[in-house]
Amino acid sequence: MDILLLFGQLAWTFFVIGAFTFGGGYAMLSLIQNQVVVEHTWISESVFTDIVAVSQMTPGPIGINSATYVGYEVLQNATGSHFLGICGSLTATLAIMLPSFVIMLLIVRFYEKFKTSTLYAGTMRFVKPVVVGLIGAAAVILILKVTWTGFSPEVTIVTENFPDWKSWLLLASAFAAGYWGKANPLWLIIAGAVLGIILY
C-alpha cells in the first residue's frame, strides 16, 4: 500500500514538474530539486548533484535523464528492489513528459494562431526572467543550505558538495572554462573526475 502511494506521489510530482517547466532542462532541474530534495526529501543534495552530473554526461535531455534517475533512486531506496526501481524510473519519465504531450498537440492544432499570439509572447517575457532566477536558485541550493527557525535564518555550506578549498577552486575553474572558454560540459565533468582522483 505504501509502495502504491509512493508511485502515486512520484507520478504526480513529475507530472506537475513537466507542466510548469518553461525554459528547458536546467529550469526543470530546479523544479526537480525543489520537489525531490526539499519538499519530499526523497534524496539528498549530494546524490542530486551526482544525478545531475550523470544526466549531463549521458545522451538525451538533462531534465528527462534526471527524472529517469530520480525515479529509480526513490523506489530502489524505499524498497531495495531493482525491479521496482525500474518501474519508478518509467513512472517518473512518462509522467514528466505527459503535460508536454497534451500541450504540444494542442499547440500544433492551433499552430497559426499560437505563432502570432502577442498575448502569449507578452506573458513569456515575464516568465523567462523568473526561469533565470529559478536556475540560479538551483545552483545556490547546491552550495548553501538555509534553515529557518522562526524568523532567523541559518546559512551553512553544503559540505557534501564543498568539503574544502579544493572544491571551491574546482568550481571557479570549471566556471571560467565553461563561460569564457566555452568548454563542452562533458569534458568539464571528465576533467572534474580526473582532478578529483588526483586531489583527494
Binding site: 552530473a53 549531463q56 533565470v132 558538495n161 568550481l171 571557479a172 566556471f175 565533468i189 572534474g192 573526475a193
Partner: peptide
C-alpha cells in the same frame, strides 16, 4: 575511486548550471 571522482565532479556540476543561467540572463533580462 568512484567516490573521489565524484568529489571532483560535484563542484563542476554547479558551474555547469551557472553558465547556461548567465547566458539565459543576458538574453532575457
Amino acid at each position: 575511486w568512484v567516490e573521489r571522482a565524484f568529489k571532483g565532479i560535484r563542484p563542476v556540476v554547479i558551474s555547469l548550471i551557472a553558465v547556461p543561467m548567465i547566458n539565459m540572463a543576458r538574453k532575457s533580462c
